[in-house]
Computed example of a mutant assay.
Amino acid sequence: MTLAMTWDDVLHWRCRQQLLHRPAEADDPVTVARTLVGVQAQVASCAEQAVAARQRTPDPGGVRAAIKDKRLVKTWAARGTLHLLDAGQAPAQLALLAAPRTWEKAAWQRTFVTVAQLDKIAAAAYEALDGAVLTREELAAAVVEHAGDESLAEPLSSGWGAVLKPLAWQGILAYGPNSDDSRVTFTRPDTYLPGWPGLPAPQEAAGTIIPAYLGAYGPASPETFDQWLIRGRSNKAALRGWFKALLDDGVLTTVDVEGERLYARAEDLDSLKAVERFDDVRLLPPFDQFVLGPGTADTRILPKQRRAQVSRAAGWISAVVAYRGRVAGVWDADGVTLFEEQGAVPAQGIDAERRRIS
């Protein structure tokens, strides 16, 4: 018999799954990154705050230590944005991002480089980064030299963040430690990260990443997962096949949430049947996975009329007030703006969070 749930129960359940109750295991930033299937790191301080928001005692230095220890890796991941990933989980996520080969689309090639040019860049970067850590400038120069093609200099200097994302998704490069003068560096994960296994086949990768996603943001649909992963660009037949295989193997199950047939991990059924309410207020930083996991278009956590206050110009995602699994407002150093339609939020909870952050 299919479990039937309300959205209220689902949203309360997700709070604990996303470690907002600050359990002891969240003291390890790698556990936080693995549980959330990555922490967005476009802004490094926001990534540190996202981890600290889930810890009993905030420790921003722990993130930097985990990067230095090569337990966390920074690379382009979900939706083409920079993330901190658990180094053990990263190969599977990258494999799913690489699977649709979006860089072979005609529009991508017209905007950036041709597949032939990208193949040259990839081969040259692979050679240049073998056991090496290079700055952006050093890598660009090395690629041109190794490829013997001066025409690559312009795309590498103008839109080269986009040009390097396909390399990251194929496991050819990742971010290295910052240089002595704090410049970004790149390296090859298989020669930099201990025990890097290479990228698994997409079907195997789906067996890792889909259950991990549903463990934090489920129950959810394949379409919601695909929007989170790569803005809906996965091959639809492959996507359906991944979910069906996991359902047939008993890894996943279906749950009825107010008439919607959604997927959840089979191992989570007991906790989904006996949801513990979560009534604590949390002030979460910009780009937090609480918002990005389900997506800002999900009106169950964020009213449609409030989306522009959270998903802002130039891709900025506001710091939010999280209460009972919903976005109850936004906040910054100057104060808090609550969304009245989301219901009352305890003032003492907001005050406690502000004291904790300060």
Rank of each mutant, 00 (worst) to 15 (best):
L72I: 08
A314S: 13
D249L: 11
A124R: 07
P166L: 15
A116H: 10
N178G: 01
L94G: 07
Q170G: 10
E204P: 02
A147R: 12
L214T: 04
V275N: 00
A328R: 01
G195M: 15
T81W: 06
A206F: 07
T75F: 06
E154T: 04
P197E: 13
W196N: 11
V320C: 00
W316C: 03
T6N: 09
P202T: 00
R14G: 04
T6C: 10
L292W: 11
V336P: 01
L284H: 11
Q42I: 02
A125D: 06
A77Y: 08
D27R: 13
R356Y: 07
D27Q: 07
N178D: 10
S182I: 09
H12V: 05
V73W: 06
K244T: 15
T57L: 10
G207Q: 14
G241L: 08
E260T: 11
V255E: 02
D181R: 11
G349W: 07
W331L: 06
V255N: 00
Y213C: 04
A237T: 13
E276P: 06
P189M: 11
R306C: 13
L20T: 01
E353R: 01
R56E: 00
E48S: 08
D332M: 04
E341T: 13
P286R: 14
Q55S: 12
W242C: 01
W76G: 00
R110H: 12
D69Y: 05
L82V: 14
R326G: 03
A153N: 13
A308I: 10
W228R: 01
W103E: 08
V327H: 04
I209S: 13
A168Q: 12
T254R: 15
R56Y: 01
F290P: 02
L239K: 11
L11P: 03
A53D: 15
V184P: 09
P200C: 04
R282S: 00
Y126G: 13
R324W: 04
A41F: 01
L152P: 03
S158Y: 14
A174R: 11
F186S: 14
E48W: 07
L152W: 12
A116P: 02
D69K: 08
A162T: 13
W169S: 00
Y263R: 11
W76I: 06
A4F: 09
Y192H: 15
Q55W: 14
V336W: 02
